[in-house]
């Protein structure tokens, strides 16, 4: 069972969300990916306006509707537009089919505004996903590092949070969130460097490691190779490739009759 935590439209074919999701499903079948989470729209917007947030989420809603229960959406929110973000949460998650939240690089997630988003996720048992990187070349002004996520996680110790990309610089990211049991790490969107998954399991335990790809910008193959090639027991690989994500999503998928 392979469930992908982390997919986007760019890189896939199709001019509409419906065409794109058909292309995704065709390729997913080839790689034996059963389900995937999709978020953000046809192009990447670092600091979207309120209208752009709604448009981005509309694209995902259309794809989810076409996705034959294999495509689940995360709503794209921005702490720069809290009123709209909370309204989008209600439209897309509380009252709609989406199953969680994606925050990207508009504002760092240690900002106090983000607390309200985390609380909404907790109330709906929705997944909270935060992009993080710790770039040697320097982060964007609003780009969260694993340290920012750790600060947020300490304020919400009972809420599961996902550390997107494991901070990119994963040897640092893993250490940064190691002491925070409510934080899981996302393997997506970095080079398939050997030893990444083994270190994550060694330091965090297999239950806190989630496979994501960052397709279509990343190759599904290169990202699957991280787990397929890891020197780990098959039961750990099963958890990482989908078991853990299914466990985290089961409450909200059950509530929405999507399991």
């Amino acid at each position: 069972m392979i469930w992908d935590l982390h997919c986007h439209f760019p890189g896939f074919g199709g001019r509409t969300p419906e065409e794109a999701v058909e292309d995704m499903l065709r390729l997913a079948d080839r790689m034996r990916i059963e389900r995937f989470l999709l978020y953000m729209g046809e192009r990447f917007l670092h600091d979207p306006t309120e209208a752009e947030l709604r448009e981005q989420n509309d694209w995902v809603l259309r794809a989810v509707a076409r996705g034959r229960n294999r495509v689940h959406g995360l709503v794209y929110l921005s702490p720069a537009h809290m009123r709209t973000s909370l309204a989008e949460f209600d439209r897309c998650v509380r009252d709609g089919p989406m199953v969680g939240v994606k925050l990207w690089v508009a504002r760092r997630c240690r900002e106090p505004e983000v607390d309200a988003i985390v609380e909404r996720c907790a109330a709906q048992r929705a997944l909270f996903f935060q992009h993080t990187w710790a770039k040697t070349t320097g982060n964007l002004p609003g780009e969260s590092s694993p340290n920012d996520l750790a600060e947020l996680a300490r304020r919400h110790p009972g809420v599961p949070l996902v550390c997107g990309h494991t901070g990119g610089n994963w040897t640092l990211g893993i250490r940064t969130v190691r002491s925070l049991p409510n934080v899981s790490v996302d393997l997506a969107g970095s080079d398939p460097t050997n030893g990444f998954v083994e270190m994550a399991v060694r330091e965090l335990g297999a239950d806190r490691v989630l496979w994501g790809s960052d397709a279509g910008g990343r190759s599904w193959a290169s990202q699957l190779g991280k787990v397929m090639g890891a020197d780990l027991p098959e039961e750990d690989k099963f958890k990482i490739l989908g078991g853990n994500l299914k466990r985290l999503l089961t409450p909200i998928l059950t509530a929405k009759n999507l399991l």
Binding site: R30, P192, T193, S219, A221, S222, G225, K226, M228, G229
Partner: peptide
């Protein structure tokens, strides 16, 4: 690029590309 990359990363690309 093994061993710095997982070897399967490359072999799976042929499957992905058909």
């Amino acid at each position: 690029y093994y061993p710095l990359f997982y070897l399967e990363s490359a072999t799976l690309k042929l499957q992905e590309a058909g």
